[in-house]
């Protein structure tokens, strides 16, 4: 555990602040998502209260602090529930793509051969495809297959997009780690291949995965919103989705109704920013090529009085030697 906290402890200065701000933002969204039921005054698909319909496109004010949109939904509640949808989809897709990508990458990198060649070809082809286009294609396919489960199919189409990213990184690091002496040492003690992959390679090749994970999460939020914006993602009656709301607000903006688009858009920007900040902060500390090694400035202390002086005094030995030594330690302290 300590090993995994280490990178955060190593962060200093700007990197640490970047990461801290990111963590605060993302943490807020997580709280909102978990307690959405208590925070939101209305349901995400609620259009009336006590039999009275909300006023269409009502401006922010008492009762609806962020206003009402053109589908009679309370915008504040939509934004709150939207956080839940976004985090559910992203979490699911990141976990799935991470597991599949890492396992396949490890296997391909270690075993090699024709399996490796085929998968690398497939993954590269997918990687070369624009990610949004790929997500659109898959959400088309999946929404046909799995009717009604909007969140799952959205998560799955994002999963497909992100698998190649983990695969490539893990496969390449495995490829070089496979030649390491400790892997040969593991073979020499009689370790079977699955032990070598699980105990010797896995821990050493996944180090860059958290960084990709957080950066991908930010990317996933915007891709999900883009899908919703195009009307391909989650339908409004299944769950609240910022991208969809944004697309509905497109016409309102021309007629001066700014609140219907402003708040879902702001939510997207804020969450993407938060996740990117964490990712960049992590990258800064865990990627040795980006990390600037920090040196403590030192000032050389005055030269120690020559030992001869101590000898000349003949009797005074211990004290002088000790104090001269201490003086150096004090002066040589690291100046910030």
């Amino acid at each position: 555990m300590k090993r995994f906290l280490k990178p955060f402890q190593q962060t200093t200065g700007l990197a640490r602040w970047i990461m801290l701000i990111g963590i605060v933002i993302v943490f807020l969204f997580i709280i909102v998502a978990i307690f959405a039921d208590f925070i939101a005054p209305y349901g995400f698909n609620q259009v009336e209260v006590d039999g009275v319909r909300f006023v269409k496109q009502a401006p922010p004010g008492p009762g609806h602090i962020l206003g009402v949109n053109d589908q009679f939904y309370d915008i504040f509640s939509r934004v709150i529930y939207g956080a839940r949808t976004a985090l559910e989809v992203v979490l699911l897709s990141i976990i799935l793509s991470l597991v599949i990508g890492v396992v396949l990458g490890l296997l391909c990198g270690y075993v090699g051969g024709w399996v490796d060649r085929c998968l690398v070809f497939l993954m590269d082809a997918m990687y070369a495809f624009p990610s949004l286009l790929l997500a659109i294609v898959f959400s088309f396919l999946l929404s046909g297959l799995m009717k009604g489960s909007g969140i799952i199919s959205a998560a799955l189409s994002l999963t497909v997009v992100y698998i190649p990213r983990y695969f490539r990184v893990v496969r390449n690091t495995t490829l070089s780690a496979r030649e390491a002496t400790y892997v040969e040492a593991a073979r020499a003690i009689g370790a079977p291949n699955r032990t070598i992959m699980g105990r010797y390679l896995f821990t050493n090749v996944i180090q860059s995965v958290p960084v990709i994970g957080t950066l991908n999460a930010a990317d996933a939020i915007s891709t999900l919103a883009a899908l919703g914006f195009l009307g391909l993602g989650i339908q409004p009656i299944d769950a609240s989705e910022w991208g969809y709301d944004l697309s509905r607000a497109l016409d309102d903006a021309a007629s001066g109704i700014w609140w219907t688009g402003m708040f879902p858009g702001l939510a997207i920007v804020l969450l993407v920013t938060g996740l990117t900040l964490i990712g960049e902060g992590l990258n800064e500390t865990m990627n040795p090529t980006l990390r600037k090694r920090r040196f403590a400035a030192i000032v050389l202390p005055e030269r120690k009085p020559k030992a001869k002086v101590a000898v000349a005094a003949e009797v005074v030995t211990n004290d002088i030697a000790e104090s001269a030594y201490e003086e150096i330690v004090d002066d040589g302290e690291v100046k910030p």
Binding site: R3, T181, Y182, A185, A188, R199, T203, N204
Partner: peptide
């Protein structure tokens, strides 16, 4: 069994 030239490389850094 075998003992390797570079003891640093022969040990798994994560164990």
């Amino acid at each position: 069994q075998m003992v390797f030239q570079d003891p640093h490389a022969a040990l798994n850094p994560a164990m």
